[in-house]
């Protein structure tokens, strides 16, 4: 394997140099080819989703599938205006934005306390927050459904907004605790000496410096809420139905309206991908909850 290490320092004859350049070039091409394969593998389903959404039902049901066809946006106009997907997208937006605002509003002070204060039971509190991220939604879906039904709140936005906090609040707390810890304590101690209250230090000194963490956790909170299906399926019917639940309701009968399903899917996925690309640098850190920086 390492035979050529020795030749490196030896007199470099012209043929040897040419040979090595050729080898390096070949390796480079292999690398380019492999990376291209990775890109293709990642992007292809997305490409297929978008192109299928531009097919009429007749083209979509061609066997074998068509790669070149006359594109039409009829599926989009139909799902948005005739089938009410626009309305469900609006519901998804309302729910995702409200739950994100609540999660940030409740989570930031808590994160600050976890990062800065010493108190008994901190360890247990931390563990409890983390467990909430791990709990399968189905565990909460059952009792939540029964309670909400008793309260007569089935099919309302507020129920989804609240239950999405079970995974958004922990995420905001983790990312922001991490962020507050990275802010040097000298700043708050100086402010404390000048007689500022803890609340003022939090709001005027630390929170502005923690804005990157707040932004990233907001993006995560939005994405997770926007993508959620199970709670939406169980807790909404028509009035508060979200877009993913709507996409599922097309799945009835024999000849599925593939074009419409893919058009709805595209409308759901596009905003998420844009947000994820914006936060792509912090994605790893956010998703591993700070375990990998």
């Amino acid at each position: 394997m390492s035979v050529e290490t020795a030749t490196g320092t030896a007199a470099t004859s012209a043929p040897a140099t040419a040979h090595r350049t050729a080898q390096r070039e070949r390796r480079l091409w292999v690398q380019i080819l492999l990376i291209a394969l990775v890109i293709l593998f990642c992007i292809f389903p997305f490409y297929w989703m978008v192109t299928t959404s531009l097919k009429t039902q007749i083209v979509a049901l061609q066997s074998p599938p068509a790669w070149i066809f006359d594109a039409t946006t009829a599926n989009y106009t139909e799902v948005l205006f005739a089938d009410g997907v626009g309305y469900t997208l609006m519901n998804s937006l309302i729910v995702a934005v409200c739950t994100t605002i609540l999660a940030v509003g409740l989570g930031c002070p808590a994160a600050y306390a976890l990062a800065r204060f010493e108190f008994r039971g901190k360890k247990d509190l931390w563990f409890w927050f983390i467990t909430n991220r791990m709990v399968s939604p189905v565990v909460l879906a059952l009792p939540f459904f029964l309670i909400v039904r008793m309260l007569g709140l089935l099919d309302t936005h507020i129920v989804l907004i609240l239950i999405y906090l079970t995974f958004n609040l922990p995420i905001v707390i983790w990312i922001c605790t991490d962020q507050f810890r990275s802010i040097p304590r000298d700043l708050d101690e100086a402010a404390l000496l000048e007689g500022a209250s803890q609340w003022r230090i939090f709001r005027s000194v630390c929170l502005p410096l923690a804005m990157p963490g707040v932004a990233v956790s907001s993006i995560f909170s939005f994405i997770f809420s926007w993508n959620e299906l199970m709670f939406a399926l169980v807790l909404t019917r028509t009035y508060a139905k979200t877009a993913p639940a709507m996409a599922v309701s097309f799945m009835e009968g024999y000849n599925l309206p593939y074009g419409k399903i893919m058009a709805t899917s595209t409308l759901i996925v596009i905003p998420v991908i844009i947000f994820a690309l914006i936060a792509s640098k912090q994605l790893v850190r956010g998703l591993t909850m700070g375990a990998v920086k």
Partner: peptide
């Protein structure tokens, strides 16, 4: 390449399943 790696992770899980129905269909699947 790094940006395209973000696409699968960001795709709504429910949509991945719907895509599965389309792409893995016996007759019409790519």
């Amino acid at each position: 390449a790094r940006l395209s790696l973000v696409v699968p992770m960001a795709t709504t899980y429910a949509v991945v399943g719907l895509l599965g129905q389309v792409m893995f269909n016996l007759k019409y699947g790519v």
